[in-house]
Design a protein around this nucleic acid. Sequence first.
DNA 1: CGCCAGGCCTGCACGC
DNA 2: TGCGTGCAGGCCTGGC
Length: 271
Amino acid sequence: MPELPEVETTLRGIAPHLQDQIVSDVVIRNANLRWPIPKDLPKLLRGRTVRSLQRRAKYLLVAFDHGTLILHLGMSGSLRILPHGTSAEKHDHFDLVLGNGELMRLRDPRRFGAVLWHEGDVAEHVLLAHLGPEPLSVEFDSKYLYDATRKRNAAIKLAIMDSQLVVGVGNIYANEALFRAGIRPQLAANKVSRPRCKRLVQAIKEVLREAIKQGGSSLRDFIHSDGSSGYFQQHYFVYGRKDEACKQCRTPIKHIKQGQRSSFYCPQCQK
DNA sequence: CGCCAGGCCTGCACGC
DNA sequence: TGCGTGCAGGCCTGGC
């Protein structure tokens, strides 16, 4: 379940292997991801050089001179670097074969992910054009969050998970950040005061930074093993801890549904 | 067997 | 009219 830290870790893992490499081939085994993988991708990329790699929200952007490969891991996707000739398994849908004897392989059992191609300025792509600021940027500060939530009557948790407001805050980190900020997930966004917006921004940055740091420490494992190794084992204060004792006050953690998603909170620590 | 998890786009209804 | 907002549905598989 890649959230932003996992995507960032993936970027750091694959970047050194792809940077300045020539694509020798593209293999599409199953084009039926969230959107179809473009059929002409092999033709488009063969013989072309990877110029740079970036992340925007949870999208990985692989830039070539003539366009950008856009990758999204959806909810079950992972990328690995493997030697040429490594046999593909059941859910290995896409390979980028490189001139250095390696290949980058996308595995995605649930196929919520995406592999797309865009010519021209990638920031103008429909999927990227309306995205809010990066959570770790200076642009995402308490003033921004306060202003952006004034007209929002919806719950604060739904607001921080809205990619038009801020990108990259998935369900787990939304829950954890709200706990750290002492805010109930169901509180209306426009009722969150300035000081609490400040705490929330700090908490979001904190949980994401910690997770990225953790990811970095197991980067080698991540790249060479099954893509789901220990880099995600942050200790959670509330996520998935229904009825368990709050780590701060021992009150049982509550579980509710918001927007068809699970929310967890401590009724004592979060108001 | 049924249900749930996850990201997030899409479509619809609503109010200003 | 058009926009922002809010909400539900859908995609898909593995694990319980």
